[in-house]
Write a protein that binds this DNA or RNA. Sequence first.
DNA 1: AACATAGGTCGGAATATCCCGACGCGTCAA
DNA 2: TTGACGCGTCGGGATATTCCGACCTATGTT
Lengths: 105, 105
Amino acid sequence: MPQTDVFSALANPVRRNILMQLRKGPRAVKELARGFDVGRPAISEHLQVLRKARLVREEPRGRERYYHLDPRPLSEVDAWLEAFTRYWDRRLAALGEVLDKEKTR
Amino acid sequence: MPQTDVFSALANPVRRNILMQLRKGPRAVKELARGFDVGRPAISEHLQVLRKARLVREEPRGRERYYHLDPRPLSEVDAWLEAFTRYWDRRLAALGEVLDKEKTR
DNA sequence: AACATAGGTCGGAATATCCCGACGCGTCAA
DNA sequence: TTGACGCGTCGGGATATTCCGACCTATGTT
C-alpha cells in the first residue's frame, strides 16, 4: 500500500481544497463532494489518502461520516520549509504581524 | 507538458533532497547525483521538474552545469500552510526562537 | 585529432495516480 | 418491509511518474 507521506498527500489540488474546507469545521462526504467537478468515489479515495497521511479523522454519525481536520502532520512540512527560511525574509515579516496581533488582543 | 506546480515538485523525496543540497550553495549535476541510489538520467529529469517549478536555476560553467536554489516559489507553500497555523501553535514557538536569536546578534 | 567527461534527452518498462460506473452494506424514512 | 440515501470499495481504463540504458552534443584533455 503506497502513499502515506504528507508531501504526496498535498500534491493534489482536490485534496488541498478538501483540507481547506475542513478548516471551517467537520464536514460529511456529501458536502465535501459538492463544489468539485469530480465524482463522489474520487472524493472518497482522496479522503483515504488523507486518512493514511493522518491529516483527517473520521467520525461516523448516523449514515453519514464527518471528517475532521488533523493539521498536526502539516508541521512536518513546516519544519522542512524552515530549513529554507533564511533565504526569503517574507516569513519573518508575516510572523511579526502575527505577534503584533497577539499583543493587541 | 504537465507538472509545473510547487506542491507536486515537493512530493518526491529525491527532489526534496536535491533542494536540501542546494541550500549549501550551487552544485554541478554530477555532485548532486552522488549520494543517491538513482542514476544520473533520473537526476537530470528531477532537475527538469524543479526547473519547471522555478525552484532551481541553471548556470552553465564550462562543460558542467551548476544548479542554484531559488526558494521563492516555496513561499506559496508557506502561504498555504499559514491558513492552518492557528491549529497548531508549534509555529509561534519556533518563531519566538528565531526572534530571540535575532535580538542577541 | 582522438578520447574522456558532463549532462540533456529519447524510447520504453514498471508502477502509481486519478477517475469512473457498478456494487454492497448500513442507516434512516414511509 | 420496502425503498431511498450516504459512503466505501472493487475492477478497470487513461494518464502520469519514475527510472533505466542508449545515444547525442558540447566541452575539456592529451
